[in-house]
C-alpha cells in the first residue's frame, strides 16, 4: 500500500506536464469563453470533474468553485453570469432556454452577476452552491452560464450567445452513489452515405449521470484483418437508469465480416469493455440485427491498474535511487579522504 501511494504521486507528476501543454493556441477571436478553475482534490483522476462541476454532497452542505470568463470578442462586453436549469433528455445534456429555474438553480449563487470585460480581458466569478438541509437524494443538473446579449438596433433579431459549465450535483448520504454502466448490444449498419457504423446500446446501471467516450477495435476480420481503434462519437450523456445508443463511425473501406468488435467506453475514471461478433451489410442504409455483447473483464479498471503501475514505478525509482547511492558511495570512496 505504501509503495502504491509513492507511485501515485509519481504518476500524477508525469501526467500533469503534457495535459497542461495540450490546449491548442487560441486564435484571436474565439468570442466569449468560460472555464472551471477549481476541481475537488478527491476527483483528481476524473477528467469530467476538471471541466464540469461534478460533486456529491450531503443535505445541508455547501461547496464553492470559481469560473473564469474570457472576452475574446474583440470589443468591450457586459457578461451576465447566472445558473440555468438543465435536463438529460434524448441522451444529451440540454440547457433550457433563458434563465430557466429548477431546484438546483435555486441553490446556486454566482457572484458577481455581471462582469464588465474590456476586449481581451478575463474575470473570475465564484459559484456557491448551498444544499438546504432536508433535501431529498438524487442527482440534479444545471449549468453556470456566461452570456453576452446586446440590445441591437430597433428592429430585427438580436443574437445572444452564451457558454456554460455543466453542474452534475448528487445529493445523498455520506457515501456517493456508485457509477456503473453496461454495454448491452452492438449493431452493425451502413449509413446512407456508405460509411459503416457500429451502434452500441449502453445502459447506466449506477446512481450518477455518465458522459460517454471511448473506442472500438475490429479484430479477427476477413483474412485475419484488424482495424481501428475508431473513436466513439461524443455527446451521449446518460441519466441514472437511462439507456442510449453510442455510435462509432468506421472507415468506409471496412466491409463484410464477421469481425470481432471490441468496444471500450469510459465516463470519467470508469471504464467498461464488451465484445460481439458483427457483420456489416453491403448496401447503404441497411442494418444488421443487434448482437448481445459479452462483457469483458476489467483488466483496465483504474482501481487495479493505477496501483499496479504505481507499484512498478515505485520499484524502478527505488532501484534507481539504490544504484545512485551505490555509485556515489563508490565515487566518494575513490576520491574522498577515506581512500588515502
Amino acid at each position: 500500500m505504501r509503495m502504491c501511494w509513492i507511485a501515485i504521486v509519481a504518476v500524477l507528476g508525469l501526467v500533469v506536464g503534457p495535459a497542461a501543454a495540450q490546449p491548442a493556441p487560441d486564435p484571436a477571436r474565439t468570442g466569449l469563453g468560460i472555464r472551471l478553475l477549481d476541481a475537488p482534490s478527491d476527483r483528481r483522476d476524473d477528467p469530467r470533474a476538471q471541466v464540469y462541476v461534478v460533486d456529491h454532497v450531503q443535505p445541508g452542505a455547501a461547496l464553492s468553485r470559481r469560473v473564469e470568463v474570457v472576452n475574446r470578442t474583440g470589443r468591450a462586453a457586459q457578461v451576465s453570469l447566472y445558473p440555468a436549469a438543465a435536463e438529460l433528455t434524448a441522451g444529451s445534456f440540454q440547457v433550457l432556454p433563458g434563465a430557466a429555474a429548477n431546484q438546483l438553480t435555486g441553490w446556486i449563487r454566482v457572484s458577481p452577476a455581471t462582469l464588465r470585460l474590456a476586449a481581451g480581458a478575463s474575470g473570475t466569478a465564484t459559484v456557491d452552491i448551498a444544499v438546504p438541509a432536508g433535501t431529498g437524494g438524487g442527482e440534479r443538473y444545471a449549468a453556470v452560464m456566461a452570456e453576452i446579449r446586446e440590445s441591437s438596433s430597433e428592429e430585427g433579431i438580436s443574437i445572444a450567445s452564451r457558454v456554460g459549465v455543466r453542474v452534475y450535483l448528487s445529493v445523498g448520504g455520506p457515501k456517493e452513489p456508485v457509477s456503473d454502466f453496461e454495454i448491452t448490444t452492438l449493431q452493425a449498419a451502413r449509413q446512407p452515405d456508405g460509411r459503416p457504423i457500429v451502434t452500441a446500446q449502453v445502459r447506466n446501471t449506477g446512481g450518477r449521470a455518465l458522459d460517454m467516450s471511448g473506442t472500438l477495435s475490429l479484430t479477427a476480420g476477413p483474412g485475419g484483418l484488424s482495424a481501428g481503434p475508431f473513436p466513439a462519437e461524443l455527446g451521449t450523456t446518460l441519466p441514472p437508469g437511462g439507456s442510449s445508443p453510442v455510435v462509432v463511425v468506421l472507415d468506409p473501406a471496412i466491409r463484410g465480416g464477421p469481425w470481432v468488435a471490441t468496444l471500450t467506453l469510459r465516463s470519467g475514471p470508469l471504464e467498461r469493455a464488451a465484445k460481439a461478433t458483427v457483420t456489416f451489410p453491403d448496401e447503404a442504409g441497411q442494418q444488421a440485427e443487434p448482437v448481445a455483447a459479452e462483457q469483458l473483464p476489467l483488466a483496465k479498471d483504474p482501481d487495479i491498474l493505477v496501483p499496479l503501475a504505481g507499484a512498478l514505478i515505485g520499484l524502478i525509482v527505488a532501484v534507481l535511487l539504490y544504484v545512485l547511492y551505490r555509485r556515489r558511495r563508490r565515487d566518494r570512496g575513490d576520491e574522498g579522504p577515506g581512500a588515502q
Binding site: A20, T30, G31, L32, G33, R35, L36, V51, R72
Partner: peptide, 9 residues
C-alpha cells in the same frame, strides 16, 4: 485546473 476555455463567437 489547467484546462483551456470553451468559447462561442
Amino acid at each position: 485546473v489547467a484546462a483551456g476555455t470553451l468559447s462561442i463567437a
